[in-house]
Amino acid sequence: MDAAGHGREEDHVNRCTVTTGFFVLGRCGRQAAASCGQCGRPVCAEHAAPSGVCPECLAAQGYGSQDPHDPAWARGRRRHYYQSSSHAYQDAAWYSSFDQYDRGAFNPGDDYAQGGDWGSDDDTGFVDS
């Protein structure tokens, strides 16, 4: 079940903690290459923006892509979605559970880490969310 079970303890400091998915959230889990200049979370090369800010912080600043053909569109839309659906459903816990998950930058690689086998550098076939 946990492909990455081995070596988790020593590894977890260096893993990208960017949130992936839209409804079924996970962590990126790939090897970190930098840290976000704003929230400080470790980010992998794929998720490191030229501005030095992680994708979630960029989206929070309103820099999310408006074009759904853009691979980053769903991620840019996610926080807005949880805000508006929480409002429509009058379910504050719905948004706060998202917010806590997204800001809780600890425990990288849990649930649905894209890194899969952490020892592997084979990063092909990822859908960037």
């Binding site: 079940m1 079924v24 659906s85 459903y89 719905w94 559970s97 806590q100 998950y101 649905y112």
Partner: peptide, 25 residues
């Protein structure tokens, strides 16, 4: 798209973020 997302929210509220049901395989 807003309407699809609004209706989609309900089935996902049964597994809020962070408590998501893990794969059993």
């Amino acid at each position: 798209i807003d309407r699809i997302l609004q209706v989609s929210t309900e089935p996902f509220r049964w597994t809020p973020p962070g408590t998501a049901a893990r794969r059993t395989t």
